[in-house]
Computed example of a mutant assay.
Amino acid sequence: MKQPTLLAMDFAALRTLRLLYENRSFTETAEVLGVNQSAVSYTIEKLRRAFSDPLFFRQGGRVVPTERCGIIVTSAMRMLDEIETLATPVSFDPGAAEQTVTIACNYYERQIILPGVVKALRERAPGIRITALNSTTQGIQLLKMSDADLLMGPLQADGHEFYSRTLLSERYVCVMDRDNPLADQPLALEQYVSAPHATVTYGGTWRSRYLLQLDTLGQKLNTVLEVPSPAGLEKVIAGTDLIATVPGRVAETYSDAVRIVQSPCPAPFEVFLVWTTRTHKSAMHDWLRKLILECVAGQPEPEPAHTVSADG
């Protein structure tokens, strides 16, 4: 069999190598590429001969890359990103653009940030289409695998291939029925943790920062109801003695049936916009990132949560 040379390798082969390195699975890599597993194995075998290195080996049922494989993938990623940048038009006309952008985000960003962005796009760049992916805790991985172009959320990535900007600063508040006795008094930590709670679990994929803060205080909520999302939560707690803890801007989207009260465990956090070197120099993506920042900058700060003085 003729020995393949590096010059004979195409960018599709290098992308296969990168995906296998990130997924550590021939099956998952084949699914991402939309090919069968034997096609992935054939490509990796050609790369092994070209680089004179096994690249991957199996250890305890896992696919493990060699040290040299890591070096090759790092260089290949830079090369693929640069080629993609070269293929992107230098100038960008929003009114004439016809492109699809994939944004990884969750309920908060779809409720608070995305509506304003979509409205602005319909006015300025109606040909740009948005696909929103549920990122859960996998947003960084979605960016790495090029399954998403942008990530909006409370996750900030480390590494030379990532860029980020702060979109919003947030903190948690309590919401409860307007007739709840706790709605008209300062909410002490002891009252807060002992009150019956409807707790948002985000499907078990994410722990809110206020829960982590309670862990450090050695406290645990009296959870009597778990829900996967803050959506419609005000309807659940209305007319009950339940308390829920949600981000301030989410609480403001709820109806007047509930009252927003200052939390003794606000656990401030930031929401970021994250992208990679793949789109960093793209004129279209640069324009879109600036548009998102502009839309967020136009948002008012959330109203202070209700509180009362200790003497009423």
Rank of each mutant, 00 (worst) to 15 (best):
G116K: 05
A257P: 07
Q191I: 08
H306K: 07
C174L: 15
P89L: 01
D93A: 11
A97D: 01
V193I: 12
L6T: 05
D184R: 13
T5L: 14
W206C: 07
D53T: 00
F272C: 01
L7Y: 09
S282E: 04
F92K: 02
L80P: 11
A244C: 13
I103M: 03
E294W: 00
S208W: 06
P54N: 05
S25L: 12
E301L: 13
R110Q: 11
E303H: 06
G248Q: 13
E82T: 13
R178N: 03
P126W: 12
I140Y: 05
C105I: 02
A76G: 06
N23E: 11
A157S: 14
H197E: 06
G34C: 08
T43V: 12
R110V: 09
A13G: 12
S135R: 13
R62L: 03
T136Q: 12
N106S: 06
Y107L: 06
L121R: 01
R289F: 00
Y163M: 02
P126D: 07
T307E: 07
T201G: 04
G139E: 15
L121C: 00
P115V: 05
S38Q: 15
A125F: 03
R207K: 15
S164K: 02
Q138E: 08
Q156T: 15
R209I: 05
D149F: 10
G139A: 11
S164R: 03
R171E: 08
S135G: 09
S263E: 08
L242S: 02
E28H: 08
P266A: 10
D10K: 14
T166D: 02
N222H: 11
S255H: 11
E28R: 15
D184Q: 08
N23S: 11
A231C: 12
T27A: 07
A283R: 00
H160D: 14
R18F: 10
Y192N: 03
Q138M: 10
L121F: 00
D256M: 09
I243A: 01
T100S: 12
R289S: 00
T66P: 06
R171K: 11
A12T: 11
I128N: 00
Y192V: 04
T307W: 15
T102F: 07
G139P: 13
N36L: 06
V64H: 07
V173R: 10
V173Q: 10
T88P: 03
R24V: 06
Y163A: 05
L273N: 02
L33M: 13
Y254C: 12
L189A: 07
V40Y: 05
R68P: 04
V236K: 10
Y210R: 04
F272H: 11
S38K: 14
L17I: 11
V200M: 04
I128W: 04
G139T: 15
I83L: 11
I130G: 03
T74D: 10
T5N: 09
H280N: 10
T279M: 02
A305M: 09
G116W: 03
A297Q: 06
G153F: 02
Q99G: 03
E234N: 09
G153E: 02
E190K: 13
Q141V: 06
